[in-house]
Nucleic acid binder design. Structure first.
Lengths: 339, 339
DNA sequence: CTGAAAGCGCTTACAG
DNA sequence: CTGAAAGCGCTTACAG
């Protein structure tokens, strides 16, 4: 019932507290016999160092706070899952901060501070950064996933949106689309804005139309379907759409099917992220692949570097993306001329 | 750079440490003037109590460790998300324990202990319970989601699998299926076993065949598809299948489509959970609804009760389920006779 | 109502 | 190599 402490171990082993602490922190300077005695006593007693006490006195809690969105997108769940796993290998733990429902003084940044996290990762695209400075001020590194904010102490990692958007644009162009659309969240997030911009830029000069559509409200399937249905019911509807995420693309596909619009013959769709579902037979979505593992590795690298040197200047990492062609776009004509 | 502590606030306000502590813990006995002075000083300095120190000395850390699976199923992600949100309202935080990749001494239970969590919730169905006793011994309540283990200090909350399975069986029977199948994970989890048992029991006496199929390996869509494809390629294939989860059902639907088997005319499918995708137009899956919110509320209730009284006897809560009829089962004949 | 003191479980200089 | 002491930021009896 009572917690086994370092004191108990010291008593059992007949050594000092400091000695026990040293063997558990792998500090140099403990005789082999000492290590043995202590380890035996610890094992016998079932001793586990209190991370709270350790964190209070030491420099590290091994806690990383993650401010994530509502995980409406499968990508978010994947990211969370892999990140947790990867951090576990490094003996770090993920502390979750619900980005929804934050009271006045209840930001994920404050939570990170309260528990003396070693770092904060923000993957929620719409999370306000108002309180990030409180972290930076306290020497708590901030890692932004999916957006760029130039600020000391704040690193950023995000997809190469421009390149992804360009590949999408080129594929649609080469497969003969001429009235293009972009469906996003109305520029709500940094990624959304970059993807639209990149798409528009890649299209400029091609002479094709581009219409920007925005999903209003929540990104649940039903809402996406309704929005897509409206878009596709227009007689001047686009013949190709690039979506800011796969989730949106799924709704678009379903709306097209419901309207009897044949994909890819009459209509092309491209998503972003390449979540597992994109490869399902029900969708076979052509999309821009953003590797979760690559995101994780980049995050870990940035984190480690920052933990080693909290004073270094902020880093911005672009994560490469790849075009994955499946069934929602037409074949590129063999000898087709390029635009 | 240096953390603002209770000491700084005391100094600034010209009062004792104890005084500051009292107003922040809302302990009775602080004059209005005292409260005011302290609160002003705290605000001016941007003071936030260290949860580590609080946890070390007090009884609560407000940390709940969640041992979750790989979140392959959307239900897991939903559960995590909602739980985190709900706990945030109660000023509690979710500490994640990766159930995968646990070394010899690296169980989620130990992690919970290391950080002095107030409780552990285990939602990973396949997580070994070997070390749960270490928690119980230290007075750390354990809440099992999705399985029953009768042990002091361990509460359980799980779906009413028996009833869900019965509803599935009855629907398939009433809509004229005669060769039934159950697709699960080979009894890997408690839920899987209960669902099969409930299904089999409900069928017994009906004179219908029941074949039990098991997915080998990972539950990713491709693997499910292959397994379903094999099942449905058999000339004696079932004309109705009950799946232990929606994820499996999706793969079954896709396999049926690929084989040109018409749903629901020639073949019926029922899932379990009613994840959002089940309602998508691409699937329209008839399924057994398990309300995430209901799961969360049950978990919270059990948690609160246990936190109030750690000595009380274990509670087992069944979460009611509901049949949601969509398009993967046939209509019940109007005047059809019941079996 | 308010403050001084002990203690939570650890680590880290500092002596020996 | 080993131990005694101070301190991390808090709370909780205990006096006043």
């Amino acid at each position: 019932m009572k917690r086994v402490t370092i004191k108990d171990v010291a008593l059992e082993a007949g050594v000092s507290l400091a000695a026990v602490s040293r063997v558990f922190t792998n500090t140099a300077g403990s005789s082999a016999r000492m290590r043995e005695k202590v380890q035996k006593a610890a094992k016998d007693l079932g001793y586990r160092p209190s991370m709270l006490a350790k964190g209070l006195v030491g420099q590290r809690t091994n806690l990383i706070t993650l401010v994530s969105g509502r995980m409406a997108d499968p990508f978010d769940a994947l990211f969370l899952d892999r990140l947790s796993e990867r951090l576990a290998q490094l003996k770090m733990r993920l502390l979750l901060a619900s980005s929804a429902l934050q009271g006045p003084n209840e930001s994920g940044f404050f939570q990170a501070l309260d528990y003396q996290s070693d770092a904060v990762i923000v993957s929620a695209g719409t999370m306000s950064l108002d309180h990030s400075s409180a972290c930076v001020r306290n020497g708590l590194p901030v890692l932004l996933m999916g957006r760029i904010v130039e600020q000391p102490g704040v690193d950023c990692a995000l997809a190469d949106n421009r390149n992804g958007a360009r590949m999408a644009a080129e594929l649609l162009l080469r497969t003969g689309c001429s009235r293009l659309g972009y469906l996003g969240r109305g520029g709500e997030t940094f990624s959304d804005r970059e993807r639209f911009k990149g798409f528009a830029d890649a299209l400029s000069g091609s002479g094709t139309d581009l219409k920007r559509y925005a999903l209003k409200g929540s990104p649940d399937n039903e809402n996406v379907f309704r929005t897509a249905n409206t878009i596709l019911s227009d007689k001047h509807r686009p013949d190709g759409i690039f979506c800011s995420s796969d989730s949106l693309a799924f709704g678009v596909i379903e709306a097209a099917r419901a309207l009897g619009i044949s994909i890819p013959d009459d209509f092309s769709v491209i998503g972003f992220n390449n979540v597992p579902q994109a490869g399902w037979r029900s969708f076979q979505l052509t999309t821009i692949d953003l590797s979760v593992n690559h995101c994780i590795e980049t995050a870990i690298e940035l984190l480690n570097r920052r933990l080693e040197n909290s004073e270094r200047c902020p880093l911005i990492r672009r994560i490469p993306v790849e075009l994955v062609v499946r069934g929602t776009t037409r074949q590129i004509p063999a000898g087709g001329k390029e635009s």
